[in-house]
Amino acid sequence: MDAYLELTDVEIAFPTPTVPFVAIQNINLKISKGEFISLIGHSGCGKSTVLNIVAGLYQATKGGVILEGKEVNAPGPERAVVFQNHSLLPWLTAYQNVELAVKQVMKNSSKAEIKDWIEHNLKLVHMDHAMHKRPDEISGGMKQRVGIARALSMQPKVLLMDEPFGALDALTRAHLQDSLMEIQHELNNTVIMITHDVDEAVLLSDRIVMMTNGPAATIGEIEEINLPRPRNRVVLTEDAQYNHYRQQVLSFLYEKQAKTEL
């Protein structure tokens, strides 16, 4: 089977006044359509860098990314990004933020169609009750929901999420994870999500990609998560298989790639 999204031998070297700084190296990954991938690794190893290359915001200095047979070399709405700090435009309401994205991808649609689609996406993330509020009038979790709605509304081929729930409290986070699983079940998006949270990775992913420490970070191990869906977080805590996966990831992070210098 041909991969839907393929990263081949990706390397990036950031220019510095002296020698270029090689942040990531030898990244090879094949992702099939509808797959949910988590990227996990210690802070500063280069997770965001990988995501930004797939998004087209950074250019790989070696190797490259191919999506549906086409090389990626610029950002575009078919690779929507959910940023860590929501990145909503503070001067626009939730509705207008989503509208900005929708207008980019539905250029030939009627006003009514556009309106319906915006409202549909806000409903999907349970934000239809606060559509006309600005980001500073809603909570952190709600902002993140709007960010997700904005990304989903573009019907991207790949959804890229950089620690989407990182800044949220545990309860809100669990809530959003459940929402995300629901949406994923419905839409079957191809997703790459960065996370620091081992439970989140195991709960949501089809595969967990674990990165070694930088500089020149690369993929250390890949863990395939064969848990049946829909998954229930409460039931899973008792599940031997689930705990085995957790243990695998934890051992990679804290034994094999333990951060010694901290």
């Binding site: 998004a55 087209g56 915001l57 950002p75 575009g76 709405p77 690779r79 929507a80 990004v81 940023f83 990145s87 435009l89 900005l100 994205a101 980019q104 573009m154």
Partner: peptide
Amino acid sequence: LLNVSKVLN
């Protein structure tokens, strides 16, 4: 926000 603008083209 500049990145948002780029991603949205």
